[in-house]
């Protein structure tokens, strides 16, 4: 961890941080943010996608309708979507400590971020799957596909561009959550922005973190857009 609370407290200048010192402050923070978001997104995709597939196919008209199980799962997902991230993070501190043994740092931030991100992503992907025409699933069934084959080729396969769009939205939301997590000592850009920019009126750092966040979100958005284009034949194959 490049930045921690003790080192931050030692720097007690009332003037703004010199430009030359910015990289040594921001680069490690950026690394922490990327690590947090990266780990969380990995967990979110791995756990959220199966939940979305289950939700979509247990709903009426799905491949394996289970009205009861669908309601329960949908209810659990809704709970995850109900709480503002700051409240969720505070509320599950005991759980986080139980899982990771700590309530500060990247590991501690990953737990609430994942818990918030998984249901978010599950709903996004469920929506994407719902937009795949039912006739495509019907054609796949008529072609003799097993449920797993149909889910992979017809449902997820057709929804890939939409899911990539959802992934972009979700990643940007996670960058935002990482900044909130930063305020309780998880580190990263958010932590730097709050301790230097907000608590110490260091305008240089404040401005630098703002620009850095804008850049990050822009890069994520542009990358997402490019991936969506590449995955959509009628956008990638213009003659």
């Amino acid at each position: 961890m490049g930045i921690n609370i003790s080192s931050a407290v030692q720097v007690h200048a009332l003037s703004d941080t010199a430009l030359a010192e910015l990289p040594s402050l921001l680069v490690p923070a950026l690394g922490e943010t990327l690590a947090m978001v990266g780990i969380v997104m990995l967990i979110v995709i791995v756990v959220g996608t199966p939940i979305a597939v289950a939700l979509h196919n247990m709903a009426p008209g799905g491949l394996f309708e289970r009205q009861g199980t669908y309601s329960v799962l949908s209810w659990i997902v809704n709970i995850g979507r109900s709480l503002p991230f700051l409240v969720l993070m505070a509320a599950i501190v005991p759980f986080t400590r139980f899982i990771t043994g700590t309530n500060i740092g990247i590991a501690a931030a990953v737990v609430p971020m994942s818990l918030a991100g998984i249901p978010f992503f599950a709903r996004l992907v469920e929506n994407c799957l719902r937009d795949v025409p039912l006739s495509v699933t019907a054609a796949a069934r008529a072609s003799g596909g097993s449920p797993l084959q149909i889910i992979r080729t017809a449902q997820l396969g057709e929804a890939v561009p939409a899911i990539l769009g959802g992934l972009t939205i979700n990643t940007i939301a996670m960058i935002e959550y990482s900044a909130i997590a930063g305020t309780i000592g998880a580190g990263g850009i958010g932590y730097v922005a709050v301790t230097y920019g907000y608590q110490r009126f260091d305008n240089t750092v404040m401005l630098a973190t703002v620009i850095l966040l804008i850049l990050m979100v822009t890069i994520v958005q542009l990358t997402g857009d490019a991936l969506v284009r590449a995955a959509t034949p009628h956008l990638s194959r213009r003659k």
Binding site: P133, S135, V136, A138, A139, A142, T153, A154, G157, E158, V160, P161, A231, T232, P233, H234
Partner: peptide
């Protein structure tokens, strides 16, 4: 049984 659907229902990708 081979089925031909109304909208051909092909995989767009």
């Amino acid at each position: 049984i081979g089925t031909v659907f109304q909208s051909a229902s092909l995989l767009s990708r």
